Amino acid sequence: MKKKVIILLFVILAVSVAFYFYVYKEHRSIANETSEYVISVKSFEKEFAENDSLANLKYLDKTVEIKGKITTIEPENKALIIDEKLFATFNGVFPNDITVGQVLTVKGRFVGYDDLLEQYKIDQITIIN
């Protein structure tokens, strides 16, 4: 009987430790990840127009580098709109040295397509150039 209690306590402890490490694992650092895809907004838009289901499977939750021209700056939301189609949000400090019309490459995590606003969304972006 005593042996069964010890085994049961050991199993409960092992499951608890595994659950703890699963729940409190480190968050992804998109800035430190290698980009899986390097693409322009226009090419991105073309792939989604051809087959949005395949494009979503390909890009969703992946680290991507996207090149385009800044069309809108929203410092209050820590966001940029690139080529009027890509809504990109910063995770940290919003840079003050960017301007509308500037061509740049950003790296971030693709979140999805917003049907209502007709925009592609990436978050946790960093500016590559």
Rank of each mutant, 00 (worst) to 15 (best):
K3D: 11
K3A: 08
V5W: 06
V5F: 08
I7E: 09
F10W: 10
L13D: 05
A14E: 07
S16E: 04
A18M: 09
F19K: 00
Y20N: 06
Y20T: 04
V23Q: 13
H27V: 09
H27A: 14
R28T: 07
R28K: 11
N32H: 04
N32R: 05
E36K: 15
Y37M: 03
S40H: 03
K46F: 10
E47D: 15
E50H: 06
N51T: 06
N51K: 13
S53R: 10
S53D: 14
S53L: 12
N56V: 05
L57A: 08
T63F: 00
V64Q: 01
I66A: 03
G68M: 07
I70P: 03
I70E: 05
I70H: 07
T72S: 14
E74A: 13
P75I: 06
E76Y: 02
E76R: 08
E76C: 01
K78A: 09
A79I: 02
I82T: 03
I82G: 01
E84D: 15
A88V: 02
T89L: 06
F90R: 10
N91M: 06
G92Y: 07
F94K: 05
I98A: 11
T105S: 09
V106S: 00
G108H: 02
G108A: 04
R109L: 15
F110L: 14
V111F: 02
Y113D: 07
D114C: 04
L116S: 13
E118S: 13
Y120V: 03
K121L: 04
I122T: 04
